[in-house]
């Protein structure tokens, strides 16, 4: 089979899985796609209330709703993708009964679905905020897209590593929750890198998710510049995780038992 033909077949398979994943992710509930908005909206409402109570204002150049939305969406994209890619194999074992479906196809389909979903959520949330304010301006859409892609890829590759490990031990699935929880507090969801004391900032910039959040904010607001966000470091992390994940997946493939 030639490479082109092989790619065409693989695309068709990922597409089929994607359609099916969309059905199982959103089709099972009465509210369907609305579910995707509930969690980010709840977080935004909570922090809006907290900021108001504490009398805090968003960092310079941003409005509060926009500031919170640009923080929570990339973070949730990262977290959800990690979680859903982690269980891509265990919740879809039945599909591996068809020889042409490979574990990596399941991972890819879930990754695409999450990125698409949160991109949609982001657009709707900012659109909603703009309706309230009366004007919509996204300073640099490409930078926003880059930041969201970064968050999605970080989730995908971390999820892939965990997913391959989960073939060996079920402990991974149980540890993933506690492992990911701290990211909520250190990814810049409700603060900005520019406002941090330098020592803390240096430390937090080792968290690649923080860079994704900063880039999304830089791209959204004309008045905000993410002075400390970097491209090289997060993409280096993505590359390392991808390499580790793909290697582990190859080894784990032989271990995978279908019953």
């Amino acid at each position: 089979m030639s490479l082109v033909r092989g790619l065409a077949v693989q695309t068709e398979i990922v597409h089929a899985i994607l359609l099916r994943e969309t059905r199982t992710r959103f089709g099972a509930h009465q509210l369907g796609y609305l579910w995707a908005f509930i969690e980010p909206l709840l977080w935004i409402a909570t922090f809006y209330g907290l900021f108001w109570l504490a009398g805090r204002t968003p960092p310079h150049g941003m409005d509060l709703v926009g500031f919170l939305a640009t923080g929570i969406v990339p973070f949730l994209l990262f977290r959800e993708t990690t979680h859903r890619v982690l269980v891509a194999i265990s919740s879809n074992k039945a599909l591996l009964f068809y020889p042409q479906v490979r574990p990596l196809d399941l991972v890819l389909a879930r990754s695409i679905l999450e990125m698409g979903t949160f991109l949609g959520v982001f657009v709707v949330l900012l659109g909603g905020a703009a309706l309230l304010r009366g004007q919509l301006r996204i300073d640099n859409p490409l930078l926003v897209l880059l930041g969201l892609t970064m968050a999605g890829l970080l989730g995908t590759t971390l999820g892939l590593v965990l997913c391959a490990l989960s073939v060996y031990t079920t402990v991974v699935e149980r540890l993933a929750g506690p492992l990911l929880r701290p990211f909520f507090w250190v990814s810049g969801v409700f603060f900005s890198a520019n406002d941090l004391p330098s020592q803390i900032r240096e430390l937090l910039l080792w968290n690649p998710v923080m860079h994704a959040v900063e880039l999304v904010r830089d791209g959204t607001f004309a008045g905000y510049t993410a002075r400390y966000a970097d491209l090289k470091f997060p993409f280096f992390v993505i590359l390392c995780l991808a390499f580790a994940g793909l290697t582990l997946e190859r080894v784990a493939r032989a271990k995978l038992e279908l019953t």
Binding site: R20, A94, L258
Partner: peptide, 15 residues
């Protein structure tokens, strides 16, 4: 094996 329990027979066939 081969079928997703939460989807209908028809949806599985389509896949």
């Amino acid at each position: 094996g081969g079928f997703n329990g939460s989807l209908s027979g028809e949806e599985n066939c389509r896949f």
